[in-house]
Amino acid sequence: MDGTRILFDGFALLAMGSAGLCITRRNPVASALWLVVTLFALAALFVLLDAQFIAVLQVLVYAGAIMVLFLFVIMLLNLGRAAPTDLKGPLGLGVGVLLAGLLLVQLLVLRQAGPATGGAARATVEQGIIPTVARPLFTAYLVPFEITSLLLLAAIVGAVVLAKRKL
C-alpha cells in the first residue's frame, strides 16, 4: 500500500465514522461539530484527488460559514441541551431505509462505471487550479449556473418575506 492509499483509507474512515456520530448524537451541538469533522475529512479526500480548489471551498463555505450559521441557530433557539428522542415511527424508518437503499444502488452503479483516470490532475497541471473549475462553469454550464443563482435569490427573498411581515 502506498502513502496515498493509507491517507485515503484514513480520511474515508474518519468521514464515515464522524458522519455516523453526527446522526447518532442526542446533543445538537455535538452533532453539528461531528458534521464539521466529516466536512474536513471530505476536504482531505478532495486534496488527495488533486482538487485543492474544491477542498478549500469545502472548508471555506461549509465548515467556515454554513456550519457556523447552524451553530448560531442552535444557540439562538437554545436547542443546545440533549433532547429526548424524536425518532419517527415505522413509516419514517421505512422511508429512511428506502432512501439509503437507493443511494447504495447508485453507488454500486457508479462503481460499475469505473474510476476516473486522473483527468482532474491532468487538467490542473495544464490550466491551473482555478481555471479547471471556472472555465466550464462560465462556458458550458453557464445556464445552469445562472439558474442556480436565481434559485438562491428566490430563497433569500422568500426568507425575507417570511421573516418580515411588515416591510
Binding site: V29, A55, V56, V59, L60, G64, V68, L71, F72, I129
Partner: peptide
C-alpha cells in the same frame, strides 16, 4: 497553490472556539 483561499478558509474557523466557549 491555493494559499489565499486557505487563509479565508482557516480565518473563518477561529469563530468556533468563541462560539463553543460561549455555549
Amino acid at each position: 497553490p491555493v494559499g489565499f483561499l486557505y487563509i479565508l478558509a482557516f480565518g473563518s474557523l477561529g469563530v468556533y472556539g468563541i462560539v463553543l466557549a460561549g455555549w
